[in-house]
C-alpha cells in the first residue's frame, strides 16, 4: 500500500477531530485545571487545590443556587415529563389530536431566550398581561411585581421553561406510542383490562426506553438551562433565584472569579454526567452502530 493510501483516511477524519479538540476537548480540560486555581483575571492564577470545591458547599449563595436547581429539576420532571406523557396518551388517536400537537409544539420552534422575553412581558408590571387580567376580575389584591418577588419567581420561570419545551417531549412520547402495536392494547382490552390498567401494565412498560431518554434529556437540559432565568430576572432579585448555570456565569464573567466559576462548571458537568449515565447506556447500541 502506498503511504498516501495509508494516511488519506486520517486526512478525512482530522478536520472534525481538530475542530472538536480546540472548541471542546481542550477547553473542557482547561476548565478542570482552572477549577483548582484561584484567579481574578488580573493577578496570575495560583494553585489552591480543592478550596474552590470546598467553597461550593460552604457558601450560602451556592447552596441557594443548588436548591434552586433542584427545584428546576423537580418541576420539570413533574410537569415537563409526566404531563407530556399523560397528554400524549390523552391526545393519541383522538380526532383533534393534530390540533393539540400543533399548539403544544409551537413554543418548541421558539428559542428559549425568546420564550423568556415573551413570559417576561406576560408577568411585567408596566402594565403586564397577568396584572391587567387580575384587575378585570377585581382581584386587585393579587396584583404584584411577579418577577421581582423572590419567593415565587423561580416557579414562574420553571413554568415558562416547561411551556417552551414540553411539546418536544409530547411529540417524542407520541412517536413512542405509535410504535406500540395496536394488538397489544386490544388484547388487553379483550381480557377485560380498563384504560388505567392497560396504561400501567401495557403502555408504560413498552414506552420505557423512550421514557428514560426523555427523562435524561430533560434533566440534562434543565441543569444547563441559562437562557430563560437570565433573560427573565438575571438571577434576581439580589441573586435569590440564581441556578448553578447563572451563578457560574456571574462568578466567571461579572465577578471575574475564573477559578471558582470553573469549579462550578465542573460541578454542573458532574451532575449532568450522573443524570446521563442511564441515558448513555440506552444510547450505547445506537452509538456503536448496531442499530439504526
Amino acid at each position: 500500500m502506498k503511504p498516501i493510501q495509508r494516511v488519506s483516511p486520517y486526512l478525512f477524519l482530522m478536520p472534525a477531530f481538530l475542530a472538536v479538540l480546540f472548541s471542546e476537548l481542550l477547553p473542557a480540560s482547561y476548565t478542570i485545571y482552572l477549577g483548582f486555581m484561584s484567579w481574578n483575571y488580573i493577578s496570575p492564577p495560583s494553585w489552591t487545590g480543592i478550596s474552590n470545591y470546598v467553597r461550593l458547599f460552604l457558601e450560602p449563595q451556592l447552596l441557594k443556587s443548588l436548591v434552586n436547581t433542584l427545584y428546576w429539576i423537580a418541576g420539570t420532571f413533574v410537569f415537563g415529563v409526566a404531563l407530556a406523557l399523560i397528554l400524549a396518551v390523552a391526545v393519541n388517536g383522538i380526532k383533534t389530536g393534530a390540533f393539540f400537537k400543533t399548539v403544544f409544539y409551537l413554543p418548541v420552534t421558539l428559542s428559549p431566550a425568546i420564550a423568556g422575553v415573551f413570559w417576561y412581558v406576560v408577568y411585567s408590571t408596566q402594565p403586564g398581561a397577568v396584572n391587567s387580567l387580575l384587575r378585570i376580575f377585581g382581584l386587585n389584591q393579587y396584583v404584584r411585581a411577579w418577577l421581582m418577588d423572590g419567593s415565587i419567581n423561580t416557579y414562574l420561570m420553571i413554568g415558562s421553561w416547561i411551556w417552551q419545551f414540553m411539546g418536544l417531549n409530547l411529540i417524542l412520547f407520541l412517536v413512542g406510542l405509535q410504535s406500540i402495536p395496536k394488538e397489544f392494547i386490544e388484547a388487553a382490552q379483550v381480557d377485560g383490562a380498563g384504560p388505567n390498567s392497560t396504561f400501567l401494565h401495557i403502555t408504560l412498560p413498552l414506552l420505557r426506553p423512550i421514557t428514560m431518554l426523555v427523562i435524561a434529556n430533560t434533566m440534562i437540559n434543565t441543569v444547563r438551562m441559562f437562557d430563560i432565568p437570565w433573560i427573565m430576572v438575571h438571577g434576581g432579585p439580589a441573586r435569590v433565584s440564581e441556578t448553578l448555570a447563572i451563578t457560574m456565569y456571574r462568578e466567571s464573567f461579572l465577578l471575574f472569579n475564573m477559578g471558582f466559576g470553573s469549579a462550578i462548571a465542573v460541578f454542573i458537568s458532574a451532575i449532568t454526567l450522573l443524570l446521563s449515565w442511564r441515558y448513555l447506556r440506552v444510547l450505547r447500541p445506537e452509538i456503536s452502530g448496531l442499530k439504526g
Binding site: V223, R224, S269, L273
Partner: peptide, 28 residues
Amino acid sequence: LNIRGRLGWFFAIFVGNFFPFQMFLIPL
C-alpha cells in the same frame, strides 16, 4: 475507510456532546 480504532476516534469526537456548555466558556 481503513482507520485503526474507529470506535475510539468516534468517541473522542462525540464525547464533546456530553459536556454542558459551561465547561467551554472561560477557555474559549
